[in-house]
């Protein structure tokens, strides 16, 4: 059993076009490391200096992981994770 991870359009080049992939891990950090082993390059698009990148939103069972401890958030079998790039910008 595993955790389902939904991949946004912009990151599908790393998953051979797949909209969702599966992985395992006790924490979000472990899960991303597991995904990286099969989808090289993905981790770097999500994580910078051991923190989630500012412009990437990751949801664990529909909750923003920033409120669940970020990369240290505990994940379990049957959970679902959704990755969405932030929609943001500014004048400068």
């Amino acid at each position: 059993m595993a955790v389902e991870v939904r991949i946004p359009t912009i990151l599908r080049p790393y998953t051979a076009g797949a909209k969702a992939v599966e992985g395992t891990g006790a924490t979000l950090d472990d899960l991303i490391a597991d995904l990286e082993s099969r989808h090289p390059g993905l981790r770097d698009r999500l994580v910078e200096n051991d923190q989630l990148r500012r412009f990437v939103n990751v949801y664990l069972n529909d909750e923003d992981v920033r409120f669940l401890g970020g990369l240290t958030a505990a994940v379990a079998e049957g959970d679902n994770v959704t990755i969405l790039p932030a929609v943001a910008g500014g004048a400068c």
Partner: peptide, 9 residues
């Protein structure tokens, strides 16, 4: 802006 480009996804 530069920020718009950095975030465009």
């Amino acid at each position: 802006s530069r920020t718009d480009v950095a975030y465009a996804s």
